[in-house]
Amino acid sequence: MELSAEIAALRAGTGDPGRLVGEFRRAVLLVPRADGSVDSTGGLISALSGGIRWFYAFTDEKALARFAVARGEAGREWPFLAILGARLVDAVVPEVDGPAGVAVNIADPDGSMLFPPVAGIVPDAYAVDVETESGSVAGVA
């Protein structure tokens, strides 16, 4: 089952959280670039909410287009990085100063899903619900 279908199943109360996370990790997600560039030096669009950096990611170009319309920016080009969900949480999240998660299809009221910085989604060293050996919570300064 694809990620969008897993999100719909979970939201309908018939999905399995483990299957959802697995599908998220296998999915190729489109993550818009913050500076509009297509080279590797550009940052990724994200937002800070509740002390968490949320990367915007989309399951397809139509979902990204709905996001652009919702932001009132449909008239401009939206360069994006195509990346596996696993790579996004395993390689990009650890580069963020503080806790970070992924907001998928955020402009779709009935099809969005948040993947927060918790164990089982992001590496334990960056999960806000895991205590380190020093007794502090990982990922929180």
Rank of each mutant, 00 (worst) to 15 (best):
L29S: 08
A27R: 10
R71K: 14
S134I: 11
A34W: 01
V93F: 12
A47I: 05
T132M: 12
V31H: 00
F24E: 12
V96E: 12
W78H: 12
E23A: 15
F67W: 05
L84E: 14
S134A: 15
E77V: 15
A74I: 13
I106R: 04
I83K: 03
S49D: 08
G75N: 15
A70T: 09
V130N: 05
A5M: 06
A127L: 05
G72N: 11
I52F: 00
V130E: 07
M113L: 06
A5D: 15
D90K: 09
I7A: 02
A70P: 09
E131S: 11
G50V: 06
V21S: 07
E61S: 08
G22R: 11
R87L: 09
A65H: 14
L48S: 04
L30E: 06
S37K: 13
V102S: 10
L29M: 12
V93S: 04
A138T: 15
A125E: 11
E61M: 01
R11Q: 07
L30H: 06
S4L: 01
G139D: 14
W54L: 01
S37V: 09
G111D: 10
D108G: 09
A63N: 08
G120D: 10
L3P: 13
E95A: 15
A27F: 07
I7G: 07
T41Q: 09
F80S: 12
F58P: 00
Y126N: 06
A141T: 15
T14I: 10
F115L: 00
A68G: 08
V28M: 08
L10M: 13
G72W: 09
G15A: 06
E95K: 15
N105E: 05
L10V: 13
L20T: 02
D129F: 04
L20M: 07
L88A: 14
I52R: 01
F67K: 00
G36A: 09
S136F: 13
R33W: 01
A141R: 15
E6Q: 15
A8I: 03
A100I: 01
S136R: 15
V122W: 08
A70S: 15
A34R: 12
E133R: 13
P17H: 12
T132C: 09
A9M: 04
S136H: 13
F80N: 04
T59Q: 01
F115T: 00
F115K: 00
G18E: 14
V128N: 02
G120S: 07
S46P: 03
L114E: 02
G135S: 08
G135M: 09
V137A: 14
V128G: 08
S134H: 08
L81C: 06
D124Q: 04
D124G: 02
V118C: 01
D124F: 00
A12K: 08
A125N: 03
V140N: 09
G18F: 05
G120C: 08
V89K: 11
G139C: 12
D97R: 15
S40F: 03
L48Q: 09
F55H: 02
T132K: 15
D90L: 10
L29V: 00
P32K: 11
G42H: 10
W54D: 01
V96Y: 00
V92G: 08
R11Y: 04
G13M: 10
D129V: 05
P123M: 05
D110V: 08
A100D: 11
R11C: 03
R71G: 01
